[in-house]
Design a protein around this nucleic acid. Structure first.
Length: 820
DNA sequence: AAATAT
DNA sequence: TATTTGC
DNA sequence: GTTTTGC
DNA sequence: AAAACA
């Protein structure tokens, strides 16, 4: 690339030149007449010669300062070339004056203000034209070179995007341009519909053809100051216009709709219906979450692309909020490349909530995320290679942890709290990359009133760990997930534990995909918003599971899974596994004894009919209403033994399943010891058994015989209850046996227990794997430091959400923890 | 981790 | 000592 | 090529 | 079976 620097401040120019040559290996090209000979670099007699030279060597990094004094046509010649960038270095008046003073020979008398102003006026007038055409403005308000170099790094001058925009940026700018034609009084919105990287149609919002334009009073709703509903609005949305303009016939398989504002729900349903496969937006809108959910269910990919290039008019605003009125959720709108050195919260938080003080959700906490290049070898290595170490005054390093898949093991102990350079974070956040690594900084977290589901952290869709991803109940890739699970079961049966784990992980990864996977590229899309990035999905290896998935994409099935599923021994195996007391090992052996059915095994005496019948009962799903009514019976009895207990129904019920496999009830009580809770559980068990509700205890509850003061009680009760829609009648035909787990715990560990008993397995597993990186061991009832063996005091934890924040984990709503 | 089966 | 069980 | 993969 | 590590 060929950069021309224009500025009134010679010092700033000099610092920039040194920075470019030092950190980006730039060569300086200058006119013979203008620059003192002792400086390095190439010399030319005319601009034309210089540009010719640059054209031949356009792939190297070249810079010149000799454009400031040239004519308009010279600047035009320069800008016409596709590898050039005009950078205006603005500077404080103070700096400019200092530069000028330093240039004057020592003998000259001190520069008075009037003389300086005269000089400034002339110099500014001469450069105004050129300055105004700059594609990038960088402002130097600093006195020292070091401080300004920080600004330069943040500005990321060498960003190729500025010279040649990516497809996303290209179409998004077209959408922005379309929005300029908007005639709606409420908001400018533009959309561009593309197919195979070609524009199919464009649209902007406003009243329909033939009606008075909204801006001329055509729409009462938009023009009146009073709040009126959408129903009275006559304006067509930009997305609708783009779709109408294209017509259904021209919307094919891979159509992508670029919207400068995230579509509203009304548009979203139309987008789904027209078969558009991807929607890319720039600005957030108030219904982002709902739109996302809708698209997720419909298999439409929704991506966010913060604009890397800005329209010239926006360029100079730095720290000002792009206040787009109250309606826009302040999303990642701040992507201004030429801003101050201060790291504002919005810079670090590409998703909603984060650091803004919008009043909803968490007030006193800031959770910041930032990204690191996908291919970064390791955090410290990269930081070191850039010579950037690494703290930022706004961030207390001890509060920063980097959830790094990339940190090698040996670094774990040395750098339990690695910190990162803020330039790097800023650049990545500004580039809107999707993140292999997220950084969360937690100030005082106040979880009060945060149980309302207003999520603060963006999940990380491509994290290796399930506890950072979203796993909704229903995946658009349910068939693929199912096939992978069959393979997993098979590996479990063969006692290939780790292979089974690998399939579980792959299935969870697929399950977390927000869109239907149709091709190999769809798997990549999940990884990176920049389609040039060919990074593969975590947990899906190159060799085996990827091949299986590709087979599925090509033929709609995985032959091995099909074979397994159809084999009679597998069916028997599955049936055996569902019997209480028979696990994978024994089930595998029994299924290979030549028996063809459970009945046959009963006849042989290998299993009892009783067990089989019970298994059949327990296999039936339990509707939510029945789960809560059974929990109601349990709690009703609990209250007679324990005044005002605290309880939670966990398991699949809490994860939102419409039918649960069992009922998990967690009970605690403030001020009670664990021992007291355990005694209570024993009493509760007895009571429930006596009344005939609890018909079978699957784990024996040992009761204290008085003389032993050891822990003779257990905290968990696994049992079977007889449930019927009209409980209490003697009509046994209506009774279905249900599995119920009752767990009691110490009040301090209640939220940890809730977390543990809510699952899913994969979520728990990765949760523990993650906290282990910080030498924390986590189980259902306690957290302790592996090295010091000190238990972490959880008595101050006020909610599950608070606990997750405390563990530096993002809040994933229980409904999105369905990883298995 | 803890109970249960071998 | 091996297996099963829970999330 | 070896080790780790949840408690 | 996959990823991290040696």
């Amino acid at each position: 690339m060929f950069i021309a620097l224009v500025s009134l401040d010679k010092n700033t120019v000099q610092w920039t030149l040194q920075y470019l040559s030092r950190e980006h290996n730039f060569t300086q090209l200058e006119l013979e007449s203008q620059v003192p000979k002792e400086r390095g670099g190439q010399r030319f007699d005319t601009h034309t010669q210089m540009i010719e030279y640059a054209t031949q060597h356009w792939q190297s990094n070249l810079v010149t300062t000799s454009l400031h004094s040239c004519t308009c046509s010279d600047v035009d010649t320069f800008l016409r070339r596709p590898f050039t960038l005009l950078v205006a270095l603005e500077s404080s008046i103070e700096n400019i004056k200092k530069s000028l003073t330093q240039q004057l020979p020592p003998s000259t008398p001190a520069l008075d203000l009037a003389a300086f102003l005269r000089w400034f006026d002339g110099a500014y007038r001469a450069q105004r034209d050129t300055l105004s055409r700059a594609q990038l403005n960088i402002y130097n308000g600093h006195e020292t070179e070091d401080a300004f170099v920080d600004v330069l790094r943040e500005a990321n001058i060498v960003d190729e995007q500025r010279i040649r925009p990516s497809w996303d940026t290209y179409f998004m700018e077209l959408a922005d341009l379309a929005s300029q034609r908007s005639n709606c009084m409420k908001r400018r919105v533009g959309a561009v519909l593309t197919q195979d990287k070609r524009v199919v149609s464009t649209g902007y919002n406003g009243t329909p053809k033939g009606l008075l334009n909204c801006a001329d009073g055509g729409c009462k709703r938009c023009n009146s100051g009073v709040e009126m509903g959408f129903a009275e609005c006559l304006c067509l949305h930009a997305e609708e216009n783009a779709l109408l303009e294209a017509g259904r016939g021209r919307i094919g398989e891979c159509a992508v709709l670029y919207c400068n504002t995230c579509p509203c729900l009304g548009c979203a349903v139309k987008i789904v219906q027209t078969g558009i496969s991807q929607v890319v937006y720039n600005h957030g809108y108030r219904v982002d979450q709902k739109t996302l959910e809708l698209f997720r269910n419909a298999g439409v990919v929704l991506r966010h692309t913060p604009m890397k290039r800005r329209a010239p008019s926006d360029k100079s605003t730095t720290d000002e909020e792009c206040d787009d009125s109250d309606e826009i959720a302040q999303n990642q709108d701040q992507d201004d490349n030429s801003s101050q050195a201060t790291l504002s919260e919005s810079d670090l938080a590409p998703a909603e909530g984060g650091g803004d003080h919008s009043g909803s959700g968490i007030k006193s906490s800031t959770i910041k995320t930032a990204s690191i290049p996908l291919n970064s070898p390791s955090l410290n290595q990269l930081a070191t290679s850039l010579g950037l170490l690494i703290t930022h005054s706004d961030i207390d390093v001890n509060d920063v942890i980097v959830k790094s898949e990339c940190l090698p093991n040996k670094h774990k102990q040395q750098h339990a709290h690695p910190s990162v350079c803020h330039h790097w974070l800023r650049d990545s956040a500004a580039a809107g990359r999707i993140l292999p690594i997220a950084l969360y900084v937690l100030d005082d977290y106040n979880p009060n009133n945060s149980e309302d589901g207003s999520d603060d952290l963006p999940p990380n869709p491509q994290s290796k760990n399930a506890c950072f991803r979203i796993h909704p109940l229903n995946s658009p890739n349910e068939h693929l997930v199912h096939a992978l699970r069959i393979l997993k079961q098979d590996r479990v049966a063969r006692d290939e534990r780790w292979n089974a784990l690998a399939y579980s992980r792959a299935a969870a990864m697929v399950k977390s995909f927000p869109h239907r996977i149709r091709s190999k590229d769809d798997i990549r899309l999940q990884l990176s918003y920049d389609s040039n990035d060919t990074v593969h999905t975590k947990n899906i290896g190159e060799k085996k599971i990827r091949a299986k998935i590709e087979e599925y994409l090509n033929y709609g099935r995985i032959s091995e899974a099909e074979t397994i599923q159809n084999s009679p021994s597998h069916k028997l195996y599955n049936a055996l596994c569902s019997i209480q007391g028979i696990g994978p090992r024994r089930a595998y052996e029994l299924s290979r004894t030549g028996a063809s059915s459970l009945g046959e095994l009963v006849e042989r005496g290998s299993i009892t009919q009783e067990d089989v019948t019970l298994a059949q009962h327990l296999e039936l799903g339990i509707p939510r209403t029945e789960v809560s009514s059974i929990a109601g019976v349990v709690m009703e009895n609990a209250r007679t033994l324990l005044p005002h207990p605290t309880h939670a129904i966990c398991g699949g019920y809490r994860r939102g399943k419409s039918e649960s496999n069992d009922i998990d009830i967690l009970i605690t009580h403030h001020g009670y010891t664990l021992q007291q809770m355990n005694e209570f559980l024993a009493n509760l068990a007895r009571r429930l058994q006596d009344m005939g509700f609890l018909t079978k205890l699957m784990r024996q509850l040992s009761l204290s015989d008085g003389h032993s003061d050891k822990h003779d009680y257990q905290s968990t009760l696994l049992g079977v209850v007889a449930s019927s829609s009209k409980y209490g009648t003697t009509d046994s035909a209506q009774v279905t046996f249900r599995r119920v787990d009752i767990i009691v715990c110490h009040p301090h560990s209640f939220h940890l227990e809730v977390l543990a008993w809510t699952g899913s397995v994969m979520y728990e597993r990765d949760l523990r794997a993650f906290v282990k990186r910080r030498n924390l061991k986590l189980n259902a009832s306690s957290v302790y430091n592996e090295h010091t063996n000190n238990e972490v005091d959880l008595s101050g934890i006020r909610s599950e959400r608070h606990l997750l924040a405390f563990l530096h984990l993002p809040w994933i709503a229980p409904e999105n923890r369905n990883c298995d």
